[in-house]
Design a protein around this nucleic acid. Structure first.
Ligand SMILES: [Zn+2]
Length: 285
DNA sequence: TCATACACCTGAAAGC
DNA sequence: TGCTTTCAGGTGTATG
């Protein structure tokens, strides 16, 4: 499932292989891929033709390619893949969009089995940090790898909230880029139970948690992210290599590497949390 | 404004 | 065997 490290890996792949190539044509092959685009597919396609990607940006799990006044925003959702393929390669069952370039080299295809991903072309606007970002990105927080991400702001924001810490980690308006896998991994590393109330998170714990988050995300990026169920692939079609480093996610019944207790998988927020109940003590309240 | 629940979607796997 | 249920979960929207 694409979270920050996977999206960053895709960003780097596109930067390597799709920059400065004039777009000759774009095919929208499934209506849901542009469901958040403020316009129709004809409008989407005509804006892109003749343009070139000059850079690929990312905040949290959102990617965007800025043009003059608007940007192409890409979100991978649950199962989205950006792949570079030969022009002659056939369109697979889950191909949702295809970009053809004037140079006649590889096409960029967007493949997405579960269709939670999508693309849109929206206005670039100045956000509260003074940065020019697409409209769709203005309402999410900075991600923890952004140099401007501030521990004190984050720590205070946590205590101002009335919720549980894992819900806060998954709330893209508080901190962006984290999904279920890395939330569980970071909480385990920081030895914090996912249901700890945000108002009970001390400044020290907030610091420890943020360090865990940045450390894990950085390590995951180094190996191209986590391919867990084949839903995520790099731009070149290869898998990410972080899965063997996972300590709790998908490790139900395995021994915790710190204390040898068994890793549990428990219902949480209409999904699951993976944790070591010995290292991550349940809150009392 | 904030917290929460739910819809959206597909196909593999598990259950009966 | 075959039909039904469960599971994976990020985002946008509705509700209180
Ligand atoms: Zn443990």
């Amino acid at each position: 499932m694409p979270e920050l490290p996977e999206v960053e890996t895709v960003r780097r792949g596109l930067t390597e292989r799709a920059l400065n190539r004039e777009i000759a044509h774009v095919q929208v092959l499934h209506p849901r891929v542009i469901r958040n685009h403020p316009g129709n597919s004809k409008d989407f396609v005509s804006y892109l033709i003749g343009n070139k990607f000059t850079t690929v940006k990312r905040r949290g799990k959102f990617l965007w390619i800025p043009f003059e006044d608007k940007a192409l925003v890409i979100h991978l959702g649950m199962s989205g893949q950006c792949l570079m393929v030969d022009q002659a390669s056939p369109s697979g069952k889950h191909q949702r969009a295809r970009f053809r370039f004037k140079d006649g080299a590889e096409d960029l295809i967007f493949v997405d089995q579960r269709t939670f991903g999508g693309m849109q072309i929206v206005d670039l606007v100045t956000d509260i940090h003074g940065e020019l970002v697409p409209l769709a990105v203005t309402n999410i927080a900075l991600d923890p790898l952004d140099k401007r991400f501030d521990l004190t702001v984050f720590s205070k924001a946590l205590r101002a909230r009335d919720t549980e810490i894992k819900r806060a980690l998954l709330n893209q308006k508080l901190i962006s880029g984290i999904g279920n896998i890395y939330a569980d991994e970071a909480l385990w590393m920081a030895k914090i139970h996912p249901q700890t109330h945000t108002q009970d998170i001390t400044a020290t714990q907030a610091r420890k948690l943020l360090l865990a988050v940045t450390d894990i995300l950085t390590q995951a990026i180094k190996v191209g992210g986590t391919t867990f169920d084949g839903m995520y692939l790099k731009v070149n079609g290869e898998s990410g290599k972080y899965a063997p480093s996972l300590e709790v996610y998908g490790q139900k019944g395995q021994k915790c590497s710190r204390c040898t207790n068994l890793i549990q998988k428990v219902r949480f927020m209409n999904r699951y949390s993976h944790l070591c109940l010995n290292c991550q003590k349940a809150p009392r309240r």
